[in-house]
Amino acid sequence: MFFTIVRQIIGSINEESPATPMTVANSQATLAIENLHVSVNETEILRGLDLNIPKGEVHALMGPNGSGKSTLANALMGHPAFEVTAGSVHFKGQDVLALPTDERSRLGMFLAFQYPAEIPGVRVASFLRMALNARRTDEISAMDFRRLLMEKMDLLKMDPKFANRYLNEGFSGGEKKRNEVLQLAVLQPEIAILDETDSGLDIDALRIVSDGVNQLRSTDLGVLVITHYQRLLNYIVPDHVHVIINGRVVDSGDSGLAKRLEAEGYEQYGDTTSEGTD
């Protein structure tokens, strides 16, 4: 290959022997993805993907349509349709791939979906309260929850009426995305993956949602922002940018890389169609 693959593996994970306490201490706060191979319906989509997202950092992932971005996001969250055939994912000293989806969530992982599901008959507020309680040892009181929810809705400039709407049912594209970020704000995960949260947002909403994410940015949160647009990265300035082509990370850099991609596209990485590469 004629391009450079920048790898930023923090701590060394030795496949032969279990991680020593020292490397775990170092990699604990990192979502560490190594040599991930994922197939859907017998077709390999991710072909040896490596990526590390330490807590406190924002990473952007960019790549052509069909390159495997949502596949990565869903494989990390444990979507049953995506079969991991090789590789590993570790977070907080845990083998993520061994956990069911709900346990990954309670471990601190969060995915803001590109296409959130609609759940009729389930109100946003009661759903979020149950989800929050599922990750707490003590139940939050109805009053405290209400206060928290209103505070976060205010942060995202959402009409309080949405709390009583049925989850995503009849929401516009932009409202669904905002509702995903609301859940992120309420559930306070340690790793958040935002899959094209910017698409479908109008210019004002994009700024509001970005401000919201920026306010949630902290040393306790690692973020993977999946996007097609440099514009979002003007608001949420990433610490690192990665390029995914055909199921592999083929380039990494700082935020300057996103600007270069905007100008030059993905052609510099050669054939970006997934056909005939097997």
Binding site: G78, P80, F110, L111, I119, A131
Partner: peptide, 12 residues
């Protein structure tokens, strides 16, 4: 829908 709710930490 199940997957969506699972992804928010609710068990099966």
């Amino acid at each position: 829908q199940l997957y969506y709710l699972n992804s928010r930490g609710l068990n099966r």
